[in-house]
Simulated assay, not measured.
Amino acid sequence: MQIEIRPTLVVQSRAEGRGSIDLIWLARLLKDIGRGSSLVVASKKSGISYRGAWGKLNQVEASLGMPLIVRTKGHGSILTEFGTFFIQFIDEMQANHHESGNAYQDALLKEIKKIEKSESARWKFLSSSDSIIQRAVTEVKGFDLKIAGSGESLEKLLNNEAHIAGYHVSDEKSSQAIHRRLSKSEIQIYPVMKRTQGLIVKKGNPLRIRSIDDLVDRKVRFINRQIGSGTRLLLDTLLMEEGIEPSDINGYLHEEFTHSAVANAILASKADVGVGVKNVAMENGLGFVPLKDEIFFIAMHRDMVSQSDASKLIRKIRSYSGETPGYKAVSLNRQIEGWL
């Protein structure tokens, strides 16, 4: 789609029954006359009859009270001083408008694209960070995805601020508690994939990090996930089980919002280790120390279940997870018996 914003200048005749005349068009006609064309030739090039052009010229001259051309029998027409000024005036107006016109044009196109996107995204989807989720949403149209922690995603769903939510849990007890809470609000839950969380380290694991216990070494620079994310909850649970104080970890308060951001920080040598999914470590050529498998769920309100977009999204997530290293597709509740 191409949109071009152009300046408009018209003169409105006071005479009854007379319409407005486009002065931009008139300036082009006068330019041809100024270059030596006769009114007959100039009017033909402008797409109007000689009689029509003559009439419009007379109307504009009468409205402005100034002649634009001088007609000399046998010698054609030449521009008056005002006619020459008028052409220059139109040229300058168009030139000055070009810069501001482009700004308005860009603003218009930006708003059109924004509205098109909002209209095509019918369903608000909040989900924990995951590359497969993001990939699936680009394939299945209709979802406006916002990356958020598992906790925030579920709270937005429960408060009817989202149509669908993606969350992950790493132990059966927590999963059962979440299931009970969501079920009370008649929210449907679908397991879609299993993935492995662990410690993402530099290639070759130069610091020989083997477990959570190694994070207390002050030489090890850690990078954390944000509060409310499932990955942060997993880490805090493991620390509590091991009796490790978060304050003993160098970098515990340094947070990132996605698995990829954690990997990028390690690649840039801003940190030595962080918690994330195996696939992200593999994609970035980093080392990985597995900690725990977890289940990723899709939750939605009952009225979303009948929407074909929701079914397509779940199928796409399961399909991608079945073919991606570090993941395993989960399509039946019996595959995760004890989690629901």
Rank of each mutant, 00 (worst) to 15 (best):
Q2C: 12
I3S: 11
E4S: 07
L9S: 12
V10E: 15
V11M: 10
V11R: 08
R14W: 09
S20M: 12
L23R: 09
A27Y: 01
R28G: 09
L30W: 09
I33R: 12
I33T: 09
G34E: 11
G36T: 08
K44G: 14
K45R: 14
I48M: 15
W54H: 10
G55Y: 06
L64W: 00
L64F: 07
L68H: 03
L68V: 03
V70P: 00
T72G: 02
G76S: 09
I78G: 03
I78R: 07
L79A: 03
T84D: 08
T84Y: 07
E92V: 14
A95R: 15
H97Q: 08
H98T: 13
E99W: 09
D106R: 06
K110Q: 09
K113R: 13
K114F: 01
I115G: 02
A121T: 15
A121N: 15
F125C: 04
S131H: 09
I132T: 05
V137Y: 06
L145I: 07
I147A: 01
G151S: 13
S153A: 08
S153W: 01
S153C: 02
N160K: 14
I164R: 01
A165L: 03
Y167H: 08
H168C: 03
D171N: 14
K173N: 13
A177P: 02
I178S: 04
R181F: 10
L182N: 08
E186S: 10
I187E: 08
K194Y: 01
R195H: 07
R208A: 11
R210A: 06
R218E: 07
R218S: 10
K219Y: 03
V220T: 11
I223G: 00
N224G: 05
R225K: 03
S229Y: 02
G230N: 02
G230K: 00
T231N: 02
R232I: 04
R232H: 13
L235T: 05
M240P: 02
I244A: 07
D248V: 06
N250A: 07
E255Y: 06
E255Q: 09
S260D: 14
A268M: 14
S269M: 14
V273E: 02
V273A: 05
V275N: 05
G276M: 09
M282C: 03
E283C: 08
N284A: 11
G285D: 09
G287H: 02
P290W: 04
P290V: 01
I298F: 05
I298T: 01
R302I: 00
D303M: 10
V305F: 10
S306M: 12
K312P: 11
L313H: 06
R315V: 03
I317Q: 00
G322K: 06
G322C: 12
E323P: 13
K328C: 06
A329N: 04
V330I: 15
N333W: 15
R334K: 13
Q335M: 12
I336E: 00
E337K: 13
G338I: 01
L340N: 04
